[in-house]
Simulated scan of single mutants.
Amino acid sequence: MRHAAYEGHRPGHHAPPDAPLSAEGRAQIHRALPLPEGITAIVTSPLLRARQTADLLSELTGIPVIDTTPLLAEWHAPSIVIGRTSETYPPEYRAWREQRAANPSLACGDGESPTDLYARANRCVDRLLRIAESQGRAVLAVSHKVLLGVLVRLAEGPGAFDASIRAAWPFAELSPMLPYLHDFNVGWTCRAPGVG
């Protein structure tokens, strides 16, 4: 599940890590209920908007939050774009955007390269599978658009980064992680009612 809407959201905006949920975000979580049957645990990103989403889901459903992991954190955008939108991106970030598809191991400044994000997504899947197997049931992962986009396109390799940037993933929407995860009873298809 993508976290719910946060304070100060603007399309194309690189949110600061401490952006809290908005009133609309809390309403989105209520509209996302009920969750699919069989979820026994919630795992979340450590970023505030994701933790608040997971905590409210836990409060409303009684499903415990059992893990907070940086593996589920959003793509680490370079600090030069945090709080900015596309019309105010600096030239070095614009140049990186032009080069990243041809060279996915290239990072912009202190940001995470598509290759590094892909490697983290693989480690995240391993962790989620271990948690799901220990629970014996489905686990809900609360995370962020770009990382979730890479997780559902893992077979595409580092190139999944560009597809996940372009893809729509509305706030508080659920989607299956990977098709093969159905074998482990941790994937499902569910469009949250009233969202997107």
Rank of each mutant, 00 (worst) to 15 (best):
R2I: 03
R2H: 05
H3S: 07
H3N: 03
A4C: 09
A5C: 12
Y6G: 02
Y6K: 04
E7Q: 15
G8W: 11
R10D: 02
R10P: 00
H13G: 02
P16S: 12
P17T: 13
S22P: 09
A23F: 13
E24Y: 13
A27M: 09
A27T: 12
Q28P: 04
Q28Y: 11
H30C: 01
R31L: 02
A32M: 04
L33H: 09
G38A: 07
I39H: 00
T40Q: 02
T40K: 05
T40N: 01
A41F: 11
A41M: 05
T44N: 01
T44M: 02
T44Y: 07
P46G: 12
P46D: 11
L48F: 14
L48V: 15
A50I: 10
A50T: 11
R51N: 05
D55W: 12
L56F: 14
T61P: 05
T61V: 11
V65S: 03
I66T: 14
D67P: 10
T68C: 14
T69A: 08
T69H: 12
P70F: 13
P70Q: 10
P70D: 11
L71R: 08
H76A: 13
A77K: 13
P78S: 10
S79T: 15
I80W: 05
I80Q: 10
V81A: 07
V81Q: 06
G83Q: 04
R84Y: 13
R84P: 04
S86T: 14
S86P: 15
E87I: 15
T88S: 14
P90N: 05
P90R: 03
P91E: 15
R94Y: 01
W96P: 04
A101P: 00
A101K: 14
A102T: 10
P104H: 10
S105K: 12
C108R: 02
G109W: 08
G109N: 08
E112P: 02
E112V: 06
S113G: 03
S113D: 01
T115F: 02
T115L: 13
L117Y: 07
L117N: 02
Y118A: 05
Y118H: 15
A119E: 14
R120P: 02
R120Q: 02
R120L: 03
A121M: 06
V125L: 11
D126I: 08
D126E: 12
L128A: 04
L129G: 07
L129M: 08
A132P: 05
S134N: 11
Q135W: 11
Q135I: 02
A138H: 04
V139S: 01
V139Y: 03
L140E: 00
A141E: 03
V142W: 03
V146K: 00
V146C: 06
G149S: 04
G149N: 04
G149H: 07
V152N: 07
L154Y: 13
L154G: 04
A155I: 06
G159T: 11
A160C: 07
A163D: 03
R166C: 00
W169R: 06
F171D: 00
A172H: 07
L174R: 10
P176H: 15
P176K: 12
P179W: 10
L181I: 01
L181S: 01
H182M: 03
D183I: 09
D183E: 13
V186I: 10
V186T: 14
V186Y: 02
W188P: 00
C190E: 00
C190K: 08
A192E: 01
A192Q: 03
P193W: 06
G194L: 03
